[in-house]
Lab assay of single mutants.
Amino acid sequence: TFELKGKVGKVVKIAEDHYLVEVEGDKWIAYSDEKLSLGDRVMVVDVDGLKLKVKRIP
């Protein structure tokens, strides 16, 4: 999972307290300090167990 840091993915689902992002064909639970929208491109900035911390990228 640490090899996911720096990888780019996209938001595929928005849940009440987390996001579902697809990175390299796999779906992961993710969270972010900013509000994300469906389809946003994101970069993995940290890995916390099986959850990814992501940030939006242009």
Rank of each mutant, 00 (worst) to 15 (best):
R56S: 13
D33E: 11
G39E: 13
D17K: 09
F2Q: 15
H18I: 14
Y19F: 08
A15K: 07
A30Q: 00
A30S: 09
I57C: 14
V12N: 10
K7E: 05
R41M: 15
V44A: 02
V11E: 00
L50N: 10
A15S: 10
R41D: 14
K5F: 15
K7G: 02
H18S: 12
L50P: 09
G6S: 01
E22N: 05
L38C: 06
L4A: 03
D46V: 03
K10P: 14
K53N: 13
D46Y: 03
R41V: 06
H18T: 13
S32I: 15
I14D: 04
P58H: 07
T1Q: 15
E22Y: 11
L38D: 14
L38Y: 09
K13V: 10
G6W: 02
D40F: 07
Y31P: 03
V45H: 08
P58A: 05
D17G: 09
S32M: 10
E24Q: 03
K55D: 15
R41W: 15
V21T: 10
S37E: 10
V8T: 08
A15V: 12
V21P: 00
I14F: 08
K53Q: 14
E34L: 08
G25V: 11
T1F: 15
V21S: 03
Y31I: 09
K51T: 10
S37H: 06
T1G: 15
V11W: 01
L20K: 06
G9M: 02
G49I: 09
K53G: 11
K55E: 15
S37P: 06
G25C: 07
E16C: 07
V11N: 03
K27T: 07
F2Y: 04
L4R: 01
R56I: 10
K7A: 12
A15I: 10
G9V: 03
V8Q: 14
V23I: 12
L36N: 03
K13S: 09
G49L: 06
L38T: 12
K13T: 07
L50M: 12
Y19D: 05
E16K: 08
V42R: 00
L4P: 15
H18Q: 13
L38G: 12
K51Q: 10
V45G: 05
E3S: 00
E34T: 11
E3H: 03
D48L: 09
G9N: 00
Y19W: 12
I57E: 14
S32A: 10
K10T: 14
H18M: 12
K7R: 03
V44K: 00
Y31T: 13
V8F: 06
G6A: 01
D26H: 13
A15E: 08
E24Y: 02
K13C: 08
R41K: 07
S32N: 08
P58Q: 06
K27A: 08
A15L: 14
I29S: 13
E22D: 05
E22F: 11
E3K: 01
V54F: 01
Y19M: 14
G49W: 10
D40S: 09
L36A: 06
G9A: 04
D48C: 08
E16P: 04
A15Y: 11
R56N: 11
G39I: 13
W28S: 02
I14P: 14
V11M: 08
I14H: 10
L50T: 13
P58C: 06
G49T: 06
L38W: 06
G49S: 10
G39N: 08
A15R: 06
I14C: 04
I57T: 14
V44D: 00
V42H: 01
K13L: 10
E34A: 06
K27F: 12
T1C: 15
L38S: 05
V21M: 08
G39Y: 08
Y19V: 13
I57L: 05
K5E: 15
I29T: 10
K55W: 06
V45F: 07
D48Q: 05
E34W: 07
V42S: 04
E34Y: 06
L38M: 08
K7C: 05
L4F: 01
G39W: 11
V54C: 03
V44E: 00
V42Y: 01
V21I: 13
V47H: 06
A15N: 09
D40N: 05
L50D: 07
A15P: 10
R56T: 11
E22G: 05
G6F: 02
D48P: 02
G39L: 11
V42A: 13
Y31F: 10
V21K: 00
A30E: 00
K27N: 05
D17N: 10
K55T: 09
R41Y: 13
R41P: 14
R56L: 11
W28G: 02
D46M: 03
V45C: 07
E3D: 03
V47I: 07
W28L: 03
E22W: 09
K53L: 13
D17V: 07
K55V: 14
Y31E: 13
V8Y: 04
V12C: 06
S37K: 13
A30M: 09
K10A: 15
K27V: 06
K5Q: 15
V45K: 04
M43T: 12
Y19S: 12
V8C: 13
T1P: 15
E3A: 01
G9F: 02
G6H: 01
W28C: 02
K5A: 14
V45A: 07
V23P: 00
G6M: 01
L52G: 01
H18G: 08
K55L: 14
V54H: 00
S37W: 08
G49Y: 12
R56V: 12
V11Y: 01
E24N: 02
Y31C: 09
V11F: 02
S37A: 09
D26C: 06
S32Q: 14
M43Y: 03
I57Y: 10
V12T: 11
L52W: 01
V11C: 05
D26S: 11
R56C: 07
D48T: 08
S32L: 11
V21H: 00
K13M: 12
E24T: 03
Y19A: 11
W28I: 03
R56Y: 11
L4S: 02
V47E: 04
G25Q: 12
R56D: 05
L52Q: 01
K10D: 12
V23G: 01
V12P: 00
M43W: 03
R41F: 09
V12H: 11
I14M: 12
E3Y: 03
T1R: 10
L36Q: 08
M43V: 15
